[in-house]
Write a protein that binds this DNA or RNA. Sequence first.
DNA 1: CAGAAAACGGAGGCATTTTCCATTTCTCTT
DNA 2: AAGAGAAATGGAAAATGCCTCCGTTTTCTG
Lengths: 201, 201
Amino acid sequence: MTIDILNEERSNLRADARRNRDRILQIAIQHFASHGIGASLEDIARAAGVGAGTLYRHFPSREALLAAALQDQQAQLLARSKQACAIANADAALQAWLEALQDYLRTFNGLPAPVLAAVKERASPLALSCETLVSITSDFLARAQNEGHARTSVTANELFLSALGIAWVLDRIDAYGTTRQALEDVFAHGYLDLSPKPPKQ
Amino acid sequence: MTIDILNEERSNLRADARRNRDRILQIAIQHFASHGIGASLEDIARAAGVGAGTLYRHFPSREALLAAALQDQQAQLLARSKQACAIANADAALQAWLEALQDYLRTFNGLPAPVLAAVKERASPLALSCETLVSITSDFLARAQNEGHARTSVTANELFLSALGIAWVLDRIDAYGTTRQALEDVFAHGYLDLSPKPPKQ
DNA sequence: CAGAAAACGGAGGCATTTTCCATTTCTCTT
DNA sequence: AAGAGAAATGGAAAATGCCTCCGTTTTCTG
C-alpha cells in the first residue's frame, strides 16, 4: 500500500555514494521543475558536480531518476487521498481525489507521458506507484458508485486514463482559455446531457 | 475552408526537385506509419536516396514533412465530415465526426502531440488544418446543442482538446482492455450520472 | 550548346544518451 | 594506524539524431 520504492533509511551505500546520490537527486528535482521531465541528464550531472557515469550508476534511466524525484510529491498525494477519504459525500470525495491526482501530474511538465507509459510497462520504476494510484482511484470510484452518482459502467482504469489524458492536454496548453475547469467539467459530465427531457424534437 | 496547404498541381519546381520531393514524401509516409511520427529523418532521406540537405530544403522541419504526409488522410477526414453532415440526428452526427477525428489522429503513432502543439502555435505547418478541424467541430457541436442533447456549456475547443487527450491515451495504451469504446463513453457521458433520481441517499 | 540558376548531397558541428574502465576513495580488518 | 580489497568515481568515447553549409552537379533557357 505504500508508494515508497526505496526508503532513505538504512542503505548500505558508502558515505560518498550516499552523498552523491542525494546531491544528484536534489539537483534533479530542481531541473525537472524548471525544464520539465526532459531536462538534460548531463546538465544535472554537471550541476551536481559528478560525472555522467555516477549519475547513471545511481539512476540507470531517466525514469528511475524521475521516480526518485517524485517521492515527496507522492507522499503528499497519499496524504491528500487520506483527507479525501474523510469527506462524507462520496462524489465529492472522488472529485477531491481526482483533483489531487491532477495536481500531482502537474509536478513536472511532461509528467503524464511517463506515467502513462508506466501503466502498461511493468518494468518501469514508476509502475509500482502507478498501480497504487489506480487502486486508490478504484476505492474512491467504488464508493461513489455505491453511495453517490458515479456511473456504474465506468472502471477505475478508464477513470485513471482519462485523468491522464486531461492532464496531458493541460500540461501543454496551459493558459489556453479557461480550459482547466472546463475540461474537468467535460470529464465529469461528458459532452452529452441526456438527463432532462430533450429540449427540442 | 480547404485543408490543403500546397496543391501538387502547377508548381515551378525543377524536374529533379519535384521528383525528389515526391519520393521523400512517399517514403516519409511509410516511415511515419511504421515508426510513428518520431521516425528518423536521416533514415527517411537515406531510404529516399537523397541527402539530408535535400530533405530539409523541401521540408524545413519535421512538422512540415508531417503536414505534407497527412494530406491524404486529411482529405479523407474531410470526406467523412461531409458524410456526417448528412446524418439526420444531430447527436449521431457529432458522434460520427468525433469518431472520424479519432481515426485521423491514429494515422501515425504519436500524432496527437504535434496536433496539440499546433493548436496554440500559429506558426506550425499543422496549424491551418487544426483551425479547420476545430471549426468543423464547432459546426457539429452547435447543431447538436440546438437540435440534440449536447451540453450547452461545452465549447468546440474543449471538445477538440478532449478528443486529443483521448487519442493520446489510446495512442499509447492500445489494446489495454476494452479501452477505446470505454474511454469514448466516459468522454460522451462523463463519469458522473446525475440524470435519474439518486439511486440512494 | 553554353552560361546561369536551381538543386543536390554528404561531411561536419552540435547536442544528448549511455557505456566502459583505469583511477581514486573509502572502509574494514588486523 | 596501515594497507588490501571493495566500492565508487568521472570523463572519454561510441552511438544516435538533428540540422547547416557549401563545393559540385543537374536542369533550364535562349
